[in-house]
Simulated assay, not measured.
Amino acid sequence: MRQTIKDRLTTARGGPELRRSMRDRIRAFQRPEPQPQPRPWRGRPEEAYAVLEDARAVIARGWIQDHWFASRRSGEFGEVAAACLVGAVVHAARQSGPGDPVIRAGPALDYLWDAWQESRGLRAAGIAGLAAPRELRMARVRDLTRWNDQPGRTREQVLGLVDLAASRAVMAAVSIPR
């Protein structure tokens, strides 16, 4: 015996046919809206903070312009007598452990760039700590290097920027959902 469509619907639903509105039928075919997912944290602000604090110590010992480093003895990178902002961060990242120091310095440089934008009254992109594209990070290094090398720049201004970046890294660390 052949079932009619009405009989099939009734059997499939386990009871009498329910009339659905056109809107209900359309909703049945729509995908449910995705629930907002918490943004995954890919960076480690604690590590960026540690690099920034070590860089601060280097700058407090000696700060220079127009060069990344000044060594106590020629050719020895470990004996840095003075460094510019970016050089201090790269040196601190090198001292913090194994691996490529430029990659390890990346999140700290991002926090510095965001802090620089904030100090200028601009809202930063807020991507510090995330995996920034190489080209973007290099552009930020150039910006920070130019800022460091501006005539009239002082060590206190550079230390102030490092302090602001370090405070932003701390705030990021305490606001990460665990």
Rank of each mutant, 00 (worst) to 15 (best):
L52S: 13
Y49A: 12
R13W: 07
Y49R: 15
E46N: 07
I26E: 03
Q117D: 13
A108R: 02
L112W: 11
A92P: 12
H91F: 09
G106P: 00
P45L: 10
R39N: 08
R73A: 11
W68E: 11
A82N: 05
D114Y: 12
R56E: 10
A48V: 00
L85N: 06
H67Y: 10
V102A: 09
A57P: 07
A55V: 03
P38E: 01
I26F: 08
D110M: 06
R27N: 12
R73E: 12
D7Y: 10
P98N: 10
R25I: 00
P40H: 12
A60Y: 08
D24T: 14
L112G: 06
L109D: 00
Q117N: 05
W63N: 01
V102S: 07
I5N: 05
G62R: 07
R27Y: 03
D24L: 10
R72F: 11
Q30I: 04
S119Y: 05
A83W: 05
A93M: 04
E46A: 07
D24S: 14
R25F: 11
A115T: 04
L112M: 08
W113M: 04
R94T: 13
Q65R: 14
Q65G: 09
G99A: 00
V80Q: 14
V80E: 07
R56Y: 10
T4A: 02
A70H: 04
P45R: 06
S96R: 15
R23E: 12
P34F: 03
T10H: 07
P38I: 04
P34R: 15
G15F: 04
A92K: 00
R13D: 08
E79H: 13
A81G: 07
L112Q: 08
V51K: 10
G87T: 13
M22E: 01
D54A: 14
W41S: 07
E47A: 13
Y111R: 02
E17M: 15
E47T: 12
R13M: 06
I5T: 12
L9C: 11
R23A: 07
R94N: 13
R20H: 05
Q3L: 14
S21Q: 07
R73H: 14
Q35N: 01
G78P: 01
P45N: 09
E53I: 14
G62P: 11
R39H: 05
V51Q: 13
G97M: 15
W116H: 10
P34H: 09
A60R: 15
S71I: 00
V58Y: 09
G78R: 11
R72M: 02
R2V: 02
A12K: 09
A48W: 00
Q30H: 04
R23L: 04
H91W: 15
L18M: 01
W63L: 12
A88L: 12
I103P: 00
V102I: 14
D114M: 06
I5V: 10
R20L: 11
L9A: 09
R44Y: 09
E47F: 06
Q65W: 06
P34S: 13
G78H: 10
E118G: 04
P101I: 00
E33P: 02
V102N: 08
A70S: 09
Y111I: 01
A50L: 09
G43S: 15
L85F: 06
D110T: 13
L52N: 00
V102R: 13
R56N: 01
R72H: 09
V80C: 11
R23S: 12
A57W: 11
